[in-house]
Design a protein around this nucleic acid. Structure first.
Length: 584
DNA sequence: AGCACGCCGACT
DNA sequence: GTCGGCGTGCTC
């Protein structure tokens, strides 16, 4: 007997091993086998009769039963093809870590899902979505998998629902135990992050994705696939119900709902705060707080309620007062961000000492441009000397931080949220900037509740994201947004793929990308954009990229020509990375 | 991805 | 004369 095994390698092919007579193996089972003399963990993808001559034997099984069902094996094969990565790395990055030695943990095989009558995935929006979810889960006996965008959120929900945890917040053995307990129906609800996506569940099962729009559902690295896309596929194959929860869904999911592939369950309007914009013209240059926001902070404090001020990441740079030039990274051309005692490029990480004179005109008047948390804290402290102001203490009267400080707050727990400079977010050269702005303002409105106030400082008070957040109008926002996406040929109407190369020098990276581009020439239906530095206009950095725009079947069209570049990444001293459906 | 093999520069 | 850089190729 021969078995074919895939490993956590960037290789498409499987490796064949001899199965010794006494060893009972099945597809989907984890095994240890020698690869280049070292024992490694792989997954059996096929068993067949054949000539075992010259094959090394499998050392043994990691668990006595398959950890993945045949259906899940196929699900992962699809996911790997869809993301141009290998079958093995896709599967192994989604499994709990193997036990160090042979452990006698009680395990049950992954149940083979029974294809049930398909039910349309559901998109739950609106005020009461989380309360409705808890009600739904408590009134049901179905096995349920809850996927959260991050560990904190997974932990909160696990506690709230008394669920077993399957993310890296739990120990490796606890994760394995939860995995096999879920497959036997012993743990009715399991909660986790991406690493829990493949947990086998006895039918009928329910799949839940929290904060469907969150880019944390597709972090860098394998599996290079959005959790939403994997769950949509899994639910369709297994006939499971899938609930996608989000206050501000992605345009992709909204479009699916609009075209009838997803059923929208709108929880209705919430009691909503006033969302007001404050014109920053002539003010932001000198002070981070407009009179409107200043009054809101004072009012909240007087009412004994807390304020959160949102600043954008890397919002502060150094500019010359004489010639107006912004200090940029010599390699990447993006503005250098202020770090303690230095300037740092947030792209390549290079650190420069704080200069005393302008590299352009030699002037001595260099001043900060933009408002980071540190500068805002100092300015607000001067303005409100009697309030407690902090960048860390969640209990301070005024808390200053990035958008993530709004995560996990009960509705109505804040008196005021101020967005110091929404324009810093809108200026980002990303077609999803509007969506991100809406997400931020909506989260702010939910966090303050009806009695609070959201103040948005901007030069664009008429921006669609601000209007939609003020009017609590998702439908209006997406009508506008999807029209733009269609006109410009962006997702969900076209698919994107980002091909990037890293090398010592720009010419090397460019040459490497030139090779990739040449391999794609002549494929109908693709638009291959010319290579550009990874961000900004720097021409010296060895990080370049190009974008491919194409139809739904884009991964199938480019997997053959780009295959050699992803399989053998070290060529000409550079590395090629291919990312389907990039979020940045 | 690791790891070995292999061919050109600075050292006890 | 060797030690060691990392470019290229292979792993059942």
């Amino acid at each position: 007997m021969i078995c074919d095994v895939v490993f956590d390698l960037p290789l498409r092919r499987a490796f064949s091993y001899a199965v010794r007579p006494g060893l009972k193996l099945a597809r989907g089972q984890r095994v240890r086998a020698a690869l280049q003399g070292r024992a490694r963990v792989g997954i059996v993808v096929a068993l067949r009769e054949g000539d075992e001559h010259g094959l090394k034997p499998v050392d043994g099984a990691v668990e006595p039963v398959p950890i993945l069902s045949a259906a899940t094996l196929e699900l992962c094969r699809w996911a790997a093809a869809e993301s141009l990565s290998s079958w093995g790395s896709t599967m192994l990055s989604l499994l709990p870590p193997p036990p160090r030695a042979r452990a006698a943990e009680p395990v049950a095989p992954a149940p083979e899902p029974q294809p049930a009558s398909p039910t349309a995935p559901e998109l739950w929006t609106g005020a009461s979505r989380e309360a409705r979810l808890i009600e739904e889960l408590e009134s049901s006996q179905d096995a349920t998998l809850l996927i959260a965008p991050d560990r904190d959120t997974a932990g909160r929900w696990a506690e709230r629902l008394d669920a077993a945890r399957l993310d890296s917040g739990a120990s490796a053995s606890a994760r394995r135990a939860a995995w096999f307990a879920a497959s036997r129906g012993r743990a009715r609800i399991v909660a986790g992050t991406r690493s829990a996506l493949l947990v086998p569940l006895p039918p009928p099962a329910k799949l839940v994705l929290l904060d469907e729009h969150d880019p944390a559902h597709k972090p860098p690295g394998p599996p290079r696939l959005h959790s939403r896309d994997l769950l949509l596929r899994r639910a369709a194959l297994e006939g499971n119900r899938l609930l996608l929860l989000s206050a501000t869904p992605s345009a992709e999911t909204w479009w699916r709902a609009q075209s009838g592939h997803v059923a929208r369950r709108d929880g209705g309007a919430a009691a909503w705060p006033a969302v007001v914009s404050a014109d920053t013209r002539g003010i932001l240059r000198h002070h981070p707080v407009t009179p409107v926001l200043g009054r809101a902070i004072a009012d909240a404090a007087r009412a004994g309620r807390r304020t959160v001020l949102i600043v954008m990441r890397a919002a502060s740079a150094l500019a010359c007062d004489d010639c107006g030039v912004l200090l940029r990274c010599p390699d990447c051309a993006v503005p250098l961000a202020r770090a303690p005692g230095a300037l740092r490029c947030r792209l390549c990480g290079r650190s420069e000492p704080l200069p005393t004179r302008c590299p352009g005109c030699g002037g001595h008047h260099l001043s900060l441009f933009g408002w980071d948390a540190e500068r805002v804290e100092a300015a607000v402290h001067r303005r409100f000397p009697r309030l407690t102001i902090s960048r860390k203490d969640r209990g301070a009267q005024v808390l200053i931080g990035p958008a993530t400080v709004l995560k996990g707050r009960a509705s109505g727990s804040l008196g005021c949220v101020g967005v110091i400079a929404l324009d810093a977010l809108l200026r980002v050269p990303d077609f999803r900037a509007s969506e991100r702005a809406l997400e931020l303002l909506w989260a702010a409105a939910e966090a303050v509740g009806a009695a609070g106030r959201v103040v948005v400082q901007t030069l664009h008070p008429e921006h669609e994201a601000i209007r939609a957040a003020r009017d609590q109008d998702l439908a209006g926002f997406f009508e506008h947004e999807l029209k733009l996406r269609l006109e410009l040929g962006y997702p969900p109407f076209r698919r994107l793929c980002l091909v990037s190369a890293r090398s010592r020098s720009a010419p090397e990276a460019q040459a490497l990308l030139e090779e990739c581009g040449a391999a794609l020439r002549g494929i109908p239906g693709l638009i291959v954009y010319p290579p550009a530095p990874l961000s900004g206009a720097g021409t010296h950095a060895g990080r370049w990229r190009f974008l491919i725009k194409g139809p739904e079947e884009l991964p199938r069209l480019i997997s053959q020509p780009l295959g050699p570049f992803v399989e053998r990444r070290r060529r000409l001293g550079g590395m090629v990375e291919v990312e389907m459906d990039p979020l940045e």
